[in-house]
Every structure is written in structure tokens, then in C-alpha cells.
């Protein structure tokens, strides 16, 4: 691990880690930020390694299997799922999830 860190090429700035934190809705301590910067740099280093491969003329792939057109018919198959769904609510009110006031 130490070894990898010394060779790290991608350096993540404070601004970037701050921005990524906002997007991910995460509040990080200074210590956590440093660790996240290091982790992210390592990930990007690994991507750089993948980028060494010549992919000219190769179609970008989003799926591993050569499968297309998996459909369902438009038929209702599910009944009242409210109890199972609401079982995951940290807080509930009436039949809904209770969350901090949010403007739609």
C-alpha cells in the first residue's frame, strides 16, 4: 500500500474532493478528506493503466452479454406493497415516508 502511494500520479485537489462531497451529500472530516483524495487518486491511476491499452476502433461496451430486447408485457403483477416498502422507512407518518421539509 505504502509502495503504491509513493508512485501515485493523480493528485486530487481540495476543491475536487469538496465538490465530490457535495454531489455525494457527504460531510467529510479533514482526515477523511485526505484519505478520500488518496483513494481517488489511486483509482484514477488504475484507470490510466487501463487507458494504456489501444482501443481504437473498438465499440464502447455497456453490457457483457450480447442480449437485446428484454421486455415485460404491460400487465399488473404486483399488489399492495406498502407494508414491505414502509418497513424501510426510518420514520413514517400516515402511509408515507417522513423526511425533513423539502420543496418539490
Amino acid at each position: 500500500m505504502e509502495d503504491l502511494k509513493t508512485k501515485q500520479k493523480n493528485v486530487i485537489s481540495d476543491e475536487t474532493i469538496e465538490y465530490v462531497g457535495i454531489l455525494a451529500k457527504l460531510e467529510l472530516s479533514d482526515e477523511e478528506k485526505e484519505r478520500a483524495k488518496r483513494d481517488m487518486g489511486e483509482m484514477l491511476d488504475y484507470i490510466d493503466k487501463l487507458n494504456e491499452l489501444d482501443t481504437d476502433g473498438v465499440e464502447p461496451m455497456s453490457h457483457v452479454f450480447p442480449v437485446n430486447n428484454v421486455f415485460r408485457e404491460d400487465v399488473v403483477t404486483n399488489g399492495d406493497g406498502s407494508e414491505a416498502t414502509l418497513a424501510n422507512a426510518p420514520e413514517r407518518k400516515d402511509q408515507g415516508f417522513k423526511v425533513p421539509k423539502t420543496i418539490g
Binding site: 400487465v75 406493497g81 406498502s82 416498502t85 402511509q95 408515507g96
Partner: peptide, 29 residues
């Protein structure tokens, strides 16, 4: 105007009591 949701077999009917037309797919489980 489909009868069911785009990715699961839950009904799209209006007026159901809150969260009755839900399943693990449309609640992102």
C-alpha cells in the same frame, strides 16, 4: 397511459393510498 410502471409490474392507477403501488424495483432496493 400504460397500466404498469416502466420497469416493474406495479399499477400506475391514480388515487391509490400512499405507497400501495410500490415494490423493491420502483423503490430502488
Amino acid at each position: 397511459a400504460t397500466k404498469t410502471k416502466i420497469f416493474c409490474g406495479c399499477s400506475t392507477a391514480f388515487g391509490g393510498a400512499p405507497n400501495t403501488h410500490t415494490c423493491p424495483v420502483c423503490t430502488g432496493m
